[in-house]
Design a protein around this nucleic acid. Structure first.
Length: 546
RNA sequence: GCGCCCGUAGCUCAGGGGACAGAGCGUUGGCCUCCGGAGCCAAAGGCCGCAGGUUCAAAUCCUGCCGGGCGUACCA
């Protein structure tokens, strides 16, 4: 990050000095091949048309002007690019600055104390959380943390849909299980919940309640509904604890109704002429604004739909003073998202207030091939059980190591059985190895008292300079990962950094090398700092020993 | 049918206008007197789904096909 800025400034200055136009954004990128130097600019391509000269000529002139710049060892034109090889002291300065920043390294200021609300999981309390929810839990948690790194105050919120028909279905399913346990062969209702977890609870209720609810009546409905929701919430909390996700706020759908927000939202939409009546129901006129269908807001029986409540909930988010709202949702919600965004726009909320982090579903690759999860059908892998098997670190890491928009196949056997080849351990081992080495240095009396003041000039090996250049990218990776809801970029970065560290370690002796030892320990200290920071953001542990 | 997302190495996936397309796993072959071998080194493996187009430059942007996922409810 720092290095790009340095090159960008040098190029801009050279262009200006040569009487050339300076683009608003001078493009600077890392090279992929060593023969192209460390960084490169393709600015000559941008200027070619305007200057009426071939890129190669412009690049050559620019390179000549920058040849004597003290930050660079070499500045060479090639195919219209200008390639920069950094002077080692330029690179050393980066490491020195990283060590001075310490745990602050990679943090940003853009949030300026503003508040972002991240809503995720928000699973209906109809069963325990599954591997399907895990992706969302891990994603939301990490996105919130990424924003916190950028100086935002992040609020993690769970929206609890504890009202409506699904809850009744759940209650009735539980009641059926309860009856079954008493020898009364009641069927699970049409579209009800088949999972064994309800059978267990049903059997327990049969023991404690006896034959108190022989019929599915109002009393049974109330009793079983309240019991079911309580039990489901307890399971959900257990699952969230297992992966280490903690919510700051739980919002219940019932509260939105009680506060009159739903009616008020509808009234506002009506007042703005966004609603029409048909077949006894109230509809949002979405097709008028380019969407493919109009959703019902208020059913003909007078009850509000999920969509209306969702709109009301978001209006409430705006009132609660959040500066930005991020909703993490599955791909099955795209249509709903458009409806909500449209409604909010019609209600006068600013564009960009709500952003969606949309993710594709997880499929589980196990002994029986690839299977879709279904809570309703009782076919799922419970989160808590998964974590017990593969560990929290692997569970979390596997869920964020892929781009959210891509489908993710979770190879259960691989996560569990071949864990030694796991990218999670590869990254963690980098951290651990350095920790171990520092212990060894301590014993040998070779550990410098303060890494920040060590003379770095012995760091001349290509691998050492490449490692420092890689460390320089960290703040940018954090920023892009946050803005694009792309934690996988951080995983990739950490794996890449580890992929430089391990070979380096294998080939370069650290201890017993005189002044080089101190310099190399300073380098490793910087690497360990970044690995630890990165793992921390992902919610994955950075062990001192494995 | 229509809308959105995705087709990249055997598998799982990065890269989303720039210089010869990357990683992990798997496969094949090497490296343990040496700071933790949970490691390292090397090899094989690709018309980047197909066909057009835009551009000095396309895996990347546009169009059309083909294949997969999701949605298209007075479900949530």
């Amino acid at each position: 990050m720092q290095l790009e800025a340095l090159v960008r400034a040098a190029v801009a200055e050279a262009l200006a000095a040569g009487g050339k136009p300076v683009p608003a954004e001078v493009p600077v990128e890392r090279t992929t091949r060593p023969e192209h130097g460390d960084l490169a600019t393709r600015v000559a391509f941008l200027l070619a048309r305007e200057l009426g000269a071939p890129p190669a000529t412009i690049a050559a002139e620019l390179a000549a002007r920058l040849a004597a710049h003290p930050s660079f060892l070499k500045v060479q034109p090639a195919n219209g690019f200008v390639n920069f090889t950094l002077h080692p002291t330029t690179v050393h300065a980066v490491l020195r600055q990283i060590l001075a920043s310490g745990e602050r390294y990679g943090r940003g200021e853009e949030g300026e104390g503003r508040t972002v609300q991240v809503e995720f999981v928000s699973s209906n309390p109809t069963g325990p959380l599954t591997i399907g929810h895990l992706r969302q839990a891990a994603l939301g948690d990490v996105v919130a943390e990424l924003y916190a790194q950028l100086g935002w105050r992040a609020v993690r919120e769970y929206y609890l849909n504890d009202e409506g028909r699904q809850m009744d279905l759940l209650a009735q399913s539980l009641w059926a299980r309860y009856r079954q346990a008493l020898g009364d062969d009641q069927p699970i209702p049409e579209g009800g919940y088949q999972g064994a977890y309800l059978a267990e609870i049903g059997a327990e209720l049969a023991r404690t309640w006896g034959d108190a609810h022989p019929r599915w009546d109002e009393a049974a409905r109330a009793a079983f509904r309240s019991e079911a929701v309580g039990r489901m919430m307890a399971m959900i909390h257990e699952d969230l604890d297992a992966i280490g996700v903690r919510f700051d706020v739980w919002t219940k759908e019932g509260d939105l109704h009680r506060r009159g927000l739903v009616q008020e939202t509808l009234a506002q939409l009506v007042r703005r002429g966004a609603v029409y009546e048909k077949d006894g129901a109230l509809w949002l006129a979405s097709t008028r604004h380019g969407l493919d269908r109009d959703p019902v807001l208020l059913r003909s029986d007078g009850t509000p739909t999920y969509t209306l409540v969702d709109i009301a909930y978001h209006l409430d988010k705006a009132r609660r003073g959040f500066d930005l709202v991020i909703n993490v949702q599955g791909a099955d919600h795209v249509d709903e998202q458009r409806q909500v965004l449209l409604a909010l726009k019609l209600l006068g909320l600013p564009d960009g207030f709500v952003r969606y982090c949309l993710h594709q579903f997880v499929t589980l690759k196990g002994e029986e091939g690839i299977q879709r999860m279904s809570t309703r059908a009782g076919r799922f892998l419970r989160l808590k059980d998964l974590v017990a098997d593969v560990g929290r670190d692997v569970a979390r890491y596997f869920m964020v190591m892929r781009k959210p928009g891509s489908h993710l196949v979770f190879d259960y056997a691989l996560a569990r059985d071949t864990s030694l080849e796991n990218p999670v351990y590869y990254v963690q081992y980098g951290y651990t190895r350095i920790a171990s080495l520092f212990r060894e240095a301590e014993r040998a009396g070779e550990r410098p008292p303060d890494l920040r003041t060590v003379d770095l000039s012995p760091l001349t090996d290509d691998r050492e300079l490449a490692l420092i250049r890689e460390l320089d990218r960290f703040p940018d990776v954090v920023m892009v990962a946050a803005h694009e809801f792309a934690p996988h970029l951080l995983c990739e970065y950490l794996e890449g950094l580890s992929g430089l560290l391990h070979p380096y370690y294998a080939h370069v002796r650290i201890l017993g090398q005189g002044p080089a030892t101190s310099a190399r320990l300073a380098l490793l200290g910087g690497i360990q700092l970044v690995l630890g920071r990165g793992l921390g953001i992902l919610g994955v542990s950075a062990p001192e020993a494995m």
